[in-house]
Design a protein around this nucleic acid. Structure first.
Length: 481
DNA sequence: ATGTAC
């Protein structure tokens, strides 16, 4: 493959019809990050995606891009909504994996003396770890259907959410058109006992302080007033339910290629025509997983607020723990984008990528319409996290998207070879970071050294003008699987 | 990411 440098931070793979490419690949990265992408299948996977039926304009690889299942994590691809495909493989297993940020009225000096107590209380009240059931909201077979259809609204009615919480989620915390009859009984069964659980791997809940504010106006609009303010970041997804829905529809894809005459360069790049019966069914099921993931993060939010109330002996209104915003990392959405100078309805696949719509977009809450959509990059444990806001260049360059995280540098196995639990814990202690985790191996596998430098990723997004820096957050304490 | 390989 031939990669051409277009300018600083932009590279390109031109169309090669001999291998079925229909559009170019556009890579946004610095030289070092590009080098990492070239050491695995990232670019090849993006090239594969340019062969999919109905693909438009170009496939995007963001600076945090790395190899994924079929389609790169940190990738964005748009398909003609009428003639193109929708690709469950290009959304990923953890449908609506995402991040939300909560603000508080507390400062670092309020939290430090009670940090150990706070992290212990959070760890005891929020279920973490693989396949966790204890402590979750256990849904009956009919209740889970209500959650899948209504999303956060179901939790409002049960006292787990406010109307404002729902408004601070994309789509108001509910995807219209979710149909639980398109979700298998197996997926239902897995989802019923897991609502309100964090999961494992890179999922976490972190208590942070605002380290530096870069954009005071935007920060203040989000309720981030001063450096030293305490925030909470929650990173998790749709758990076993979303995973099962992806698994189920990958099978549906496999069974339909002959019927639709689809030939793929990689079986893992699973897809079906967007407008087909199978495509419509996938979307209705995917929307259920969306609603479940929002509800999941919301239940965790509720228990987080209760935990803070207990530890600081203050009421929820005193603490003013407002949800700043909630974003999705793994999604397919029908949006209008400009292709060849014309607005066109397309399926936007964002896998390990978030929406980053600029100011004025009707898809973002009124509260943020003047400044642009808030987006968050989760760091976790030793590394910083970032608040960014969407800017007009995102529509020009990345189909209204930006980066979602640092991206792994070292495999899980390599992490164990190079680091042990004691080392990682000591390193965190030296920084004053309190951690409680379900397993030791998750801590080792998630040590900051296994990730690329999140600050560089944020800076590239900023320099490209797709989403610019609002504030840098650093961890005080973290709970994880 | 995920009942870490039905």
């Amino acid at each position: 493959m031939e990669i051409t440098k277009i300018r600083d931070l932009e590279y390109r793979v031109e169309v090669d019809r001999s291998i079925g490419m229909k559009v170019p690949v556009r890579i946004f990265a610095n030289e070092e990050l590009l080098g990492k992408m070239m050491s695995d299948r990232t670019i090849q996977q993006a090239i594969n995606a340019t062969t999919l039926p109905g693909v438009q304009k170009n496939v995007v690889v963001l600076p945090d891009g790395h190899q994924g299942y079929g389609f790169p994590v940190g990738g964005v691809a748009i398909m003609d909504a009428v003639k193109g495909v929708i690709s469950p493989g290009s959304v990923g297993y953890d449908i609506n994996c995402g991040v939300r940020l909560i603000r508080t009225n507390l400062t670092e000096s309020d939290v430090r003396p009670k940090l150990q107590e706070l992290i212990t209380d959070l760890f005891e009240s929020i279920p973490v770890g693989m396949s966790k059931r204890e402590g979750c909201i256990h849904l009956s077979r009919s209740e889970i259907d209500e959650v899948l259809v209504h999303g956060v609204e179901w939790l409002i009615n049960r006292g787990y959410a406010t109307k404002e919480d729902a408004e601070m989620c994309e789509e108001g915390g509910c995807m219209i058109g979710a149909d639980p009859s398109k979700v298998s009984e197996e997926a239902h069964r897995r989802g019923m006992p897991q609502l309100g659980s964090l999961g494992s791997g890179n999922h976490f809940l972190e208590v942070q302080k605002v380290d530096k504010i870069f954009d005071k106006e935007a920060a203040n609009t989000m309720g981030i007033l001063n450096e030293g303010d305490v925030t909470i970041l929650i990173h998790c997804g749709s758990r076993g339910l979303g995973h099962q829905i992806c698994t189920d529809y990958l099978k549906v894809c496999e069974q339909s290629y002959q019927k639709y005459g689809i030939e793929l360069p990689d079986r893992q790049l699973a897809c079906v025509p967007n407008a087909s019966e199978e495509g419509e069914s996938y979307k209705m099921a995917m929307k259920c997983a969306f609603n479940y993931a929002w509800s999941n993060r919301q239940a965790i939010t509720h228990w987080t607020r209760k935990s803070f109330e207990r530890v600081f002996n203050q009421s929820e209104s005193d603490l003013d723990m407002k949800l700043v915003y909630d974003i999705a990392h793994n999604s397919a959405k029908i949006e209008d984008h400009v292709v060849d100078g014309k607005e066109k309805s397309v399926v936007v696949h964002r896998k390990g990528a978030t929406r980053a719509f600029p100011a004025g977009s009707t898809e973002i809450p009124q509260k943020y319409r003047q400044i642009g959509q808030p987006t968050f990059i989760p760091g976790s444990m030793g590394s910083s996290s970032w608040i960014l806001i969407g800017k007009p260049n995102s529509l020009e360059l990345t189909f209204g998207s930006t980066v979602h995280g640092a991206g792994r540098l070292m495999s899980r196995t390599a992490a164990h070879k190079n680091y042990n639990y004691k080392q990682v814990i000591e390193q965190l202690q030296q920084k004053g970071i309190v951690i409680k985790s379900m397993t030791r191996y998750d801590v080792v596998e998630e040590t900051p050294q296994v990730y690329k430098d999140v600050d560089v990723i944020a800076t590239i997004s900023h320099d490209l003008g797709i989403a610019t820096k609002v504030a840098k957050l650093v961890p005080l304490g973290v709970i994880k699987g």
